[in-house]
Nucleic acid binder design. Sequence first.
DNA 1: GTACAGATTGAG
DNA 2: TCAATCTGTACT
Length: 213
Amino acid sequence: MAQRLKRAWYTRNTLTIGKGLLGKKLVSVVDGVRRVGTIIETECYIGPKDRASHAYNGKRTKRNGVEFLIGGHVYIYLVYGMYWQFNITTAKEDMPECVLIRALYPLEGYFPIMNKKEIEKLANGPGKMCRWMGFDKKLYGEDLIKSRHVWIEKGMPISEEDICETPRINIEYAGTLWAGKPWRFFLRQYNYLLAKETYARAIQHKNTTKRRI
DNA sequence: GTACAGATTGAG
DNA sequence: TCAATCTGTACT
């Protein structure tokens, strides 16, 4: 608890936070079960200018409203009708910027008869991560500074050489300029367990999605 | 009221 | 390669 990150940490530049979250510990206590994982992959969304952001052009709805809160709050939403996406707000109030947590390396939790390989795959994607941690709409707008259910603690030291950056995943709809921004970050040493084919899937998804003529 | 498409995943 | 699944949002 003493290690919990404070407000000032979350009110800085979003890209700095996106990288800074790598190696930190994400802690969840849901239904009395405590789970902890090291954050190993993130993505930044920087509205209103970012076409891939839900707050693009200042759009503010019931769904994305908490994006406008000061840094350190939880913005969680359902995608594809099935999977929760866990984001952390950043920057000052009324600046709709956030960081999507895409993958964790499980450290603590209940692992029923699982080998190392299986445990590593429990949270190696944004939807899987939420499923394992027990995250859903209950956490919408939660404050990481004082929540009893979710917060972030200091983790292992990370050096700049450990951080890889690539374009974000599955946002081709935002156009090449924004889809091309290198705002996805991950730790080099965990690359082996991240879904490598995700980017190819993004293109396939675009091709199979129904669109208006 | 109705249609549409998505910050994914896992099975075939 | 592709279906599942459902809600916010836009438009009639």
